[in-house]
């Protein structure tokens, strides 16, 4: 089956983001295609490049990065959620005259249309709340 995920949880609020990332790994491990993960609202903070996780805690960013790198999963940050939270790619940093991009390069910015397109083309859409 084709799966897509909607992540509303911030990477720093509890371990909802880690739970979602583990679920994503298990989707792939069971032989499904994980098409896209759409990060909305506080979920968009997942793509912040500069986060440092204490050594005794698992990093949500690292888990998502691994999924993107090993399984060609599209990691999309809702562009308006991301901009509001200071997560900018190079293009947006230039457009808004900020010094530097703050988004991790394994993520992409995109509109809600990509969530809708994921719903149309996926058999399952699983939401992970805050």
């Amino acid at each position: 089956m084709i799966y897509s995920l909607l992540v509303l949880a911030a990477p720093t609020s509890g371990h909802a983001s880690l739970t979602a990332a583990r679920f994503a790994q298990a989707v792939v491990a069971r032989g499904h295609q994980l098409k896209r993960v759409f990060f909305l609202d506080d979920g968009a903070l997942t793509g912040l490049a500069g986060t440092i996780t204490p050594q005794d805690e698992a990093s949500a960013l690292a888990q998502w990065q691994q999924l993107g790198a090993n399984h060609e999963v599209e990691l999309i940050l809702c562009i308006s959620s991301a901009l509001k939270r200071g997560v900018l790619d190079a293009t947006e940093a230039e457009r808004y005259e900020r010094n530097t991009a703050t988004m991790h390069p394994d993520f992409e910015l995109g509109g809600l249309g990509l969530l809708v397109e994921a719903m149309q083309t996926s058999d399952r859409l699983i939401t992970f709340g805050q």
Binding site: Y3, F23, A26, R30, T127, G129
Partner: peptide
């Protein structure tokens, strides 16, 4: 958890 989502066609997230 994934197996349950295979069986049930939709999911309602209460959060």
């Amino acid at each position: 958890f994934v197996a349950l989502t295979e069986h049930w066609p939709q999911q309602m997230a209460w959060h």
